[in-house]
């Protein structure tokens, strides 16, 4: 490796990495949040369960994107294309959820008559 040849003071300054401590801190947080989501996932919290699970997953994903994927240092264009894909995923979901949540319960498959339905006279 032509290591010494390229090691000017300027390039050394430019290419210095992060302290590895930050990576281990993010890793520890990710493990902590994983433990939290397993514990809350096994508790019976009714409708809140899915929202807690998605909230924790979003926090974990944000940590990975910001620090492991270095989005904090990415130029604006890179942030834009990634965040726009997330925004359009959310637009897609809002559209479909709007349909699902306003449907008449009779139209859901669970409302279909079963074989145990009372017989017609």
């Amino acid at each position: 490796m032509a290591h010494e040849a390229t090691e000017t003071p300027a390039s050394k300054d430019e290419h210095h990495g992060h302290g590895v401590g930050r990576y281990f801190l993010v890793w520890g947080l990710l493990l902590l949040f994983t433990a939290t989501t397993v514990i809350t996932g096994r508790m019976d919290l009714g409708a809140a369960n899915i929202f807690i699970a998605l909230f924790i997953a979003t926090v974990k994903a944000t940590l990975v994107v910001l620090f492991f994927m270095h989005m904090t240092e990415a130029p604006g264009a890179n942030r834009l294309v990634f965040v726009v894909s997330l925004v359009f995923s959310i637009v897609l979901m809002i559209g479909v959820f709007g349909d699902l949540w306003t449907r008449n319960p009779m139209t859901l498959p669970s409302a279909a008559p079963t074989t145990e339905a009372p017989e017609r006279p």
Binding site: G41, A53, L54, A57, A61, V64
Partner: peptide, 17 residues
């Protein structure tokens, strides 16, 4: 990292609902 990101969402949605 993207592979990890997808799993972060798959894990609670499949194993913890």
């Amino acid at each position: 990292h993207l592979v990890d990101l997808v799993w972060i969402f798959l894990f609670p949605l499949l194993y913890l609902i």
